[in-house]
């Protein structure tokens, strides 16, 4: 069987898990065998059926107070136990913070191969083969797994589509107990300061980013207005962050976030390799820059050579009309 982990926080599933279900479905169909969704948490019964509706054949449900919040060790112990008590060929998770940790930890406990942040999965000659970017997007690495199973892999966010829930899909839901007792867990979560923006760079469908050419922090409200009009997120280049115009959490690129939106609007960003590394696989890239020779134009699908202070407000106004 193929196992996939459904990541949730307070009962809300991270979309990346439904993307992982899609990737897992593809592997199960090509390799043969069932796709089993693993739902861990407290009071998360409903998610088992949703996982089946979105493509899994069955679900394993572990409802336990000790799993209410994601903590690596109790989660890993339960995932490891499920794997050891079944014949699991591959495990697919989303390459979120927690998915990267959980997959690596369990792979080490089991002594099996790991491929993180995959952008393509395939089955060749009865074996799972994946592709993943490396060297900040300047290499593509094709990974073959050794003999030990399961093959452990995580999929990059926003690469695989989410399947619509099909309410006619039915499957068995098996309940299990958590492996570690409360007394075996040393990790204590003392609090969470929730992120301010509900639309984060990682999951945004549209991103509007500003760079050095903004000339100062006063250019960013204009960029925010553009992002808000499109229901997107605000981003920035390293130059703008290093200049102190906008906090680091907005930075896209090698030392910031890697993003993959449907639409990336780069405003007054020249397009250094380090910035391109974080956004060049966006589906559609629009560049607005005064300098017609800016490298960003080599990667953009649409370009406007001009002053962002003239063009961005005009775009915001036009998009507002279009949204209506």
């Amino acid at each position: 069987m193929i196992l996939t982990w459904i990541e949730q926080r307070d009962g809300n599933v991270d979309t990346i898990s439904w993307e992982a279900v899609t990737a897992g479905r593809q592997i199960a169909d090509e390799l043969g065998g069932e796709l089993v969704a693993l739902v861990l948490g407290a009071g998360v019964d409903g998610l088992a059926n949703e996982a089946i509706q979105r493509g899994a054949d069955k679900a394993v449900l572990v409802n336990d107070a000790s799993l209410a919040q994601f903590r690596l060790k109790p989660y890993a112990a339960t995932v490891q136990h499920v794997i050891e008590s079944h014949d699991v060929k591959a495990v697919v998770m989303g390459a979120s913070s927690s998915g990267l940790e959980l997959s690596a930890y369990v792979a080490a406990k089991l002594g099996v191969g790991l491929a993180a942040d995959c952008t393509d999965v395939a089955v060749e000659g009865g074996k799972v083969v994946i592709s993943r970017p490396a060297l900040i997007g300047n290499l593509v690495v094709k990974v073959n797994f050794g003999e030990a199973t399961p093959n452990m892999l995580t999929v990059r966010r926003r690469i695989f589509p989410v399947m619509e829930a099909d309410e006619s899909r039915r499957g068995d839901v098996v309940s299990m107990n958590a492996v570690l007792g409360a007394g075996d867990i040393s990790t204590e979560i003392k609090g969470l300061e929730a992120a301010e923006n509900t639309i984060t760079l990682a999951n945004a469908r549209i991103i509007a980013s500003g760079g050095r050419g903004l000339g100062g922090p006063e250019g960013f409200p204009m960029m925010q207005a553009l992002a808000d009009t499109l229901g997107g997120a605000l981003g920035a280049s390293r130059a703008a962050v290093d200049a102190g115009w906008i906090p680091y959490e907005y930075q896209v690129g090698q030392t910031g976030k890697t993003v993959q939106p449907d639409l990336y609007i780069a405003c007054a960003i020249s397009g250094a390799i380090q910035h391109l590394a974080g956004m060049k696989t966006s589906k559609v890239i629009v560049a607005i820059n005064k300098d017609p020779d800016a490298p960003i134009f080599k990667y953009a699908h649409y370009g406007i050579v001009g002053d962002i202070f003239d063009y961005v407000p005009a775009l915001t106004a036009e998009f507002k009309k279009a949204q209506k």
Binding site: N138, L139, V141, V143, F145, G146
Partner: peptide, 9 residues
């Protein structure tokens, strides 16, 4: 447990 080949994107 993992073998890889590198290529340009």
């Amino acid at each position: 447990q993992v073998l890889w080949e590198m290529a340009l994107p």
